[in-house]
């Protein structure tokens, strides 16, 4: 197994991350469901402003890993440190990490009983304790940024899948997170809606957001990723720049995976 932290992000990308500080640090993270091991000593470091795409076959532990990073799942061994805060049983740390890490889900998970604008402004009001007017103003600004200000007063059920996913991104951004996690966000979308979501993610990456993206969109990975990690059976098998990863992967398992999907 190659050491994830050792690989320097280089290549044709404009960012120089060599002196950026560590944003996410995972050290020998393991997790079991009953007698099934979902994560097997996962170690990785993600720098500030870095965009990491996690690839791999289904059931390989990708989703479990990024869900551990904002503690939707609890890792059982190893350490996870997010922005200098270690994820332990400490209530304050959990709350701090949750409000610093935004997450977008495959199934959107918008709150169906709230209007779009309330979906976006709810957390800032009650978690960040912002005044309602300010929170709604910010929500409108974010909806404009994702391109759907005119849908603000509709219910999520009245929107198309792509629009819902854009609202979900706006909802996550409303908490002003330092890190964004994307868990197969385009998998539940009709093909014609995938692009509108990916465009927003690209823009977000260009604006300097630290991002971890689990996806099957190879085009997106090639174009946007600073680094690509390949996970299988709960382990990080290979790490590298897109050029390295797609053009001459070293591991056999990676080659097999690439030959199946490309």
């Amino acid at each position: 197994m190659s050491d994830a932290t050792a690989t320097e992000p280089t290549g044709g990308h404009t960012k120089d991350l060599s002196r950026a500080r560590d944003m996410i640090l995972c050290e020998d993270v393991s997790k079991w469901y009953g007698d099934f091991q979902a994560l097997d000593k996962v170690s990785a470091t993600i720098k500030e402003q870095e965009v990491v795409v996690v690839l791999g076959p289904s059931g390989g532990g990708k989703s479990t890993w990024i869900r551990c990073i904002n503690r939707l799942e609890i890792h059982q061994e190893g350490r996870i440190i997010v922005d200098d805060v270690e994820l332990t049983n400490d209530l304050r740390n959990i709350e701090q990490v949750r409000s610093e890490v935004g997450m977008v889900f495959q199934q959107f998970n918008l709150f169906p009983h709230l209007k779009v604008i309330d979906n976006v402004s709810l957390a800032p009001i009650w978690v960040r304790k912002k005044p309602r007017a300010e929170a709604e103003e910010q929500a409108m600004a974010l909806l404009e940024r994702v391109g759907i200000p005119e849908q603000a007063h509709k219910y999520p059920g009245q929107l198309s899948g792509g629009q819902q996913q854009r609202v979900a991104i706006a909802r996550a951004l409303a908490m002003e997170p330092k890190i964004m996690l994307f868990d197969e966000v385009t998998s539940a979308l009709d093909p014609e809606m995938v692009k509108e979501v990916l465009d927003i993610m690209k823009a977000l990456a260009l604006s300097g957001m630290t991002m971890m993206v689990v996806t099957h969109e190879m085009g997106f990975a090639k174009e946007v990723a600073d680094r690509i990690m390949f996970m299988e059976e709960g382990q990080i098998v290979e790490v590298g720049t897109p050029t390295h990863f797609f053009e001459n992967p070293t591991e056999d398992r990676t080659k097999l995976f690439l030959s199946q999907i490309l």
Binding site: N70, E95, R98, G102, M103, N109, F111, R171, A174, M175
Partner: peptide
């Protein structure tokens, strides 16, 4: 999960 993820 969505509610937890926004820090509620």
């Amino acid at each position: 999960e969505a509610a937890e993820a926004v820090g509620m």
